[in-house]
Each structure stands twice: as C-alpha cells, then as structure tokens.
Amino acid sequence: MRLIRNVAGVVVFLLIWEGFGRSGYLPVDYFPPPTVVAGTLADQFSSPEYLRALVATLLTWLIAFGISVGVAVPVGLVLGSVPFVRDATRSVIEFLRPIPAVAMIPLALVLFGNGPSMKITLAVYAAIWPIMFNVIYALGQVDQQYLDTARSFGLGRVRTTLRVKLPDVLPFAITGFRLSATVALLVIVAIELVNGGSIGIGTYVMQYGENVGHMDIVFAGAVVAGALGVLINSGIALLQRKLVPWGGGTE
C-alpha cells in the first residue's frame, strides 16, 4: 500500500512537470519536461565519459563518507566520554561547525589543488559533524539506570562502555551516518558544479549543460544526484534495521 502511494506521488509529480514543461509557459529548452530528460538520461548512460564521471563522484563520496565515519565515531566517543576534553573543545567545535564547506573551497584549493583530495577533504569537513554530535549527545543521554544496573553487577568502566554504552549509542550514530552521507554527496556535487576541475557528475553537468545552455543535461544531473541520495539513504536505513533490530534510540 505504501509503495503504491509512493509511486502515485512520483507519477503525479512527473505529470505536473510534463504538463508545465509542455505548456509553452517557458521555452522547452529552458525547462525540459521529463520525457526529454529521460531521453537525455538514456543517452548519458550509454556514454563512457558520463559513466566515468558518475563512478568518480561515487568513489569520492565513498572515500569521504568512510573517512568521516572513521574519524567522527572515535572522536565523538572520546569527546563524549571525557567531560574535560568535551568542555575544552566545545567552543572550537561550535565555531567550526557552522562554516559552510563550500566557503572553504579557496583555502582547500591552495592546500590540496583542484583534485579529488580537495573534494574529499571538504566533504569530510562537512560530514563529520552530524555523526560526531550524535555520538557525543547519545553518550550523554545513556540512561543512568542502565549504568547502575551494570555497576550493581560489578561491571567496570571498560566493560560498561563496551556492553552498555556502545549498543545504546549505536542507533544515534547510524542516524548520524544517514545525515552525513547525504551531506557528503551534496558537498561533492556542489564543489564539482561550482569549481569544475576534477572529473565527476557535477563537472560533467557544468561542462556540457550549464556552460552551453543544455538545460536537459542539468535536469538529468539533478535527477541522478537525487536518485543517488535516495539510494544511499535507503541503504543506510536497511543497515539500521539490520544492526538495530530493537529499534532503539529514535523513540
């Protein structure tokens, strides 16, 4: 039933888009309807150059996401467990966190050049916060009685961390993963679009679409980026159901 409703929503959206695109209100070249975009997509997926760009973006994303998880989880655990360290770093974090990653492009260009490592660095910069904050927050929220129970059975600090705190934090961390994965993708495509340079779908859209007025390619790029976002999100949601069968955290 839910699937039917979801599909119905998409169909209605496409119909409105198609109707609007064909209405003549805007030139078809500027606002291509989905039938035109679908044709463009089909062409792109048979073009090796486009596929290379797609793979490049995905790889960049995967590396950036992996590094974000690898950095943010341990750092979050340390910051969340040691009150002194948490307090000492709080204001620095609060200062760094709201700076948009895209605003750091000039700095990153100087430091890393215009290659994948620049994209990865900025994506990591943007993506570590949601995971880190969720882990820190969740560690602070572990129910006192969970800890009392462990203590009353004589579990020490290390065992309590491993067997009580970590499983309790896990659902929050995974929620952080979902947010971070989307943010990383967003930042990578945005850098490609703004800056071009290294290979990726954003760069492809800029070269063949934006710069030469091919709006169908711009739209196709948006559709692909959106689809990637949905796929990544549902992939992590699946992971969440596998790893957190008790449905904790979010309640």
Binding site: Q145, D148, T149, S152, P167, D168, V244, W246, G248
Partner: peptide, 16 residues
C-alpha cells in the same frame, strides 16, 4: 555477590 532488582524494569533491562 549482590544483585539489585529495580522498580523500573524498562530502564533496567537492555533493549538490545
């Protein structure tokens, strides 16, 4: 060699 049973079982049993 001591065990405690708390009032609030929902916060004493581990949901995972």
């Amino acid at each position: 060699d001591l065990a405690v049973v708390f009032q609030d079982y929902s916060r004493s049993l581990y949901p995972w």
